[in-house]
Every structure is written in structure tokens, then in C-alpha cells.
């Protein structure tokens, strides 16, 4: 995570932005079924939980002492991530949004997200590792208005007609969750 991003051409950067801005617009417009088409069928969608950790005394003086990675209980840990989902669960969430008895989203929440800091970190033959940050404003009836803040660590598959998401890990900037739900698509 300490390295510079891969040097990319303006066109390639523009391709990535176009993909992510399209995705953001679909999600803010509540077009979740169209969003599903951006996912690979073997997609992994992970939200690690985050804890206030004890710093390792022996790492003092080093950046690693307060590395974010120590705070994450992710897929490979023996802790419990908030979400570890494949296509089926993501589809269940997406389809739920269009049921009239999904009471907690009826009336639906209003969201607006800004996706930025898009960096290509590694490139394989047809896969790309991409980082991006988001701020997501969230308002719904009877709830405080909320700011979600986090980073997305994606693996994209490059296809003839664009990209699809093979893996997304969402690093949220919260330990205690003072948010109405982590059930959104970030």
C-alpha cells in the first residue's frame, strides 16, 4: 500500500473513472438490478470489521505500528467481518429493494456518493487492482442524516465491453457502527 500507483495513460484512467462514475450513478439512482450486471458471478464482497487495537510496543518508531491492516478483521481472520457475500446474497439485497414490504427502506433512503482517489495499483493479464475512496451521504425518514466514509479495494476483470467487479473489500472508517445499516452497496 506504500507504493505509487501504476503509471496509466489518461485514456486508461478515464476508462476506470467512467466505470466507477457509472456505478455510483446507478447506485444513487437505486438501479440495483443494473448494478448487479457489473458483478462477476463469482464476486466476493467483503466488509471487514474494524477494532481499536493495542499497539505493538516492539513496532514503535515504525509506520507499521499504526497500520490500518492491524485493525481489520477480514475474510482470512478468525474474527468476524461485517459482510462476506457472493452473488446470491448481493442479489437478495438488490431484489429486496423492490419489494413493497421492505419496511426499513420504504420510503427509500436518499444517497449521494462521491467516488474519488481512483488508483490502479497493479495490473495482471486481464485483472486490475484498483483503490478508490468514497463519501456517501445518506438520509432516510426518521433517521439522522449520515456520512459513510471508506475505501474500496477492488479487483476488476477487464472485458471487451468494459470491466466487471470480481472482488470488493470495503474498509469503513468506523469501529463502533454509528450508522443505520451496513447493508448498502458501497
Amino acid at each position: 500500500m506504500s507504493t505509487l500507483s501504476v503509471e496509466v495513460s489518461p485514456e486508461q484512467q478515464r476508462q476506470l473513472e467512467r466505470f466507477y462514475f457509472h456505478e455510483a450513478r446507478l447506485l444513487d439512482n437505486r438501479q440495483y438490478l443494473q448494478w448487479l450486471t457489473l458483478l462477476s458471478e463469482d464476486v466476493r464482497y467483503i466488509i471487514p470489521s474494524r477494532v481499536n487495537v493495542q499497539v505493538n510496543n516492539r513496532a514503535r518508531g515504525q509506520e507499521d505500528m499504526i497500520s490500518i491492516e492491524h485493525e481489520l478483521e477480514g475474510e482470512d481472520s478468525m474474527g468476524c467481518p461485517h459482510r462476506e457475500e457472493g452473488y446470491m446474497l448481493l442479489m437478495l439485497r438488490a431484489e429486496r429493494a423492490y419489494k413493497i414490504n421492505s419496511w426499513s427502506e420504504n420510503p427509500p433512503a436518499r444517497t449521494r456518493r462521491i467516488v474519488g482517489n481512483i488508483e490502479l495499483m497493479a495490473q495482471g493479464s486481464d485483472t486490475l487492482s484498483v483503490l478508490s475512496n468514497f463519501h456517501l451521504y445518506y438520509a432516510r425518514p426518521g433517521s439522522d442524516n449520515i456520512l459513510y466514509s471508506g475505501q474500496r479495494r477492488d479487483t476488476l476483470l477487464s472485458q471487451t465491453d468494459g470491466f466487471c467487479i470480481v472482488r470488493r473489500e470495503v474498509v469503513l472508517d468506523y469501529a463502533a457502527i454509528e450508522l443505520p445499516t451496513l447493508g448498502l452497496f458501497f
Binding site: 468476524c80 467481518p81 461485517h82 459482510r83 446474497l89 429486496r96 419496511w103 433517521s143 450508522l179 443505520p180
Partner: peptide, 16 residues
Amino acid sequence: SSFFGPAGILEQEDSE
């Protein structure tokens, strides 16, 4: 975690 807790597809309805 899929159904309960802060990301749970059921408990997001309970908490509301």
C-alpha cells in the same frame, strides 16, 4: 453476519 449485526439483512429491519 449475513442476517444479523450491523450489516444483517434482517436486523437492519429490526433496528429501524
